[in-house]
Amino acid sequence: MTADHQEQLFRRWLADHAGLLWKVVRAFAALATDQEDLLQEISLQLWNSVPAFRGDARESTWIYRVAFNTAIGWQRSEKRRRLKHEAFLKFHDEPAHEPSGDSDLIAALYAAIRELPKLDASLALMLLDDLSYREMADVLGISENYVGVKLNRVRKQLADSLKGAHHEL
């Protein structure tokens, strides 16, 4: 793979899967500074992974793997000293388009996901994004049956967490 091709693919992934990356980042880090730091780390790992991408796996599966593996590792070394970098994330002040009830719900959901063990948090994200059992199994490296078993638990944990926040599942 040429350097140009690597850059092209990386840019496309960033454009097409920004939502996915942002969800992972927000699910694993609560503070804005940590979120930017984690996004930088995931981007670095994603960039490194591009030459190994042969198209055997779906792009989203590949990006989920890289993002989750990095996010899990990043939390372990969260306190390490980091070098200052330029702000490549732009936060807009404009109000969100979704109704305020929905944004409260999404915020509560992110908080509930952050309370889960890291692997369950990964599953919860994929469940909410409606990935198939096959895709979840591919990302995690476990059987589809076991994905089913774990999802029941994750669903219950999320429901319990959100009950306190006036939502019922």
Binding site: E7, F10, R11, L14, A15, A18, G19, W22, K23, R26, L39, Q40, S43, L44, W47, H85, E86, A87, F88, L89, K90, F91, H92, E94, A96, H97, E98, D102, S103, L105, I106, L109, L127, L128, D129, D130, H167, L169
Partner: peptide
């Protein structure tokens, strides 16, 4: 809940400067 989750539009609240990010990477 899934519908609300999938309807969230992060791009409206955040944008990535790909050039700067690539430079940082």
């Amino acid at each position: 809940l899934q519908k609300s989750w999938q309807a969230q539009a992060p791009a409206r609240k955040i944008s990535i400067d790909a050039d700067l990010l690539l430079k940082e990477v």
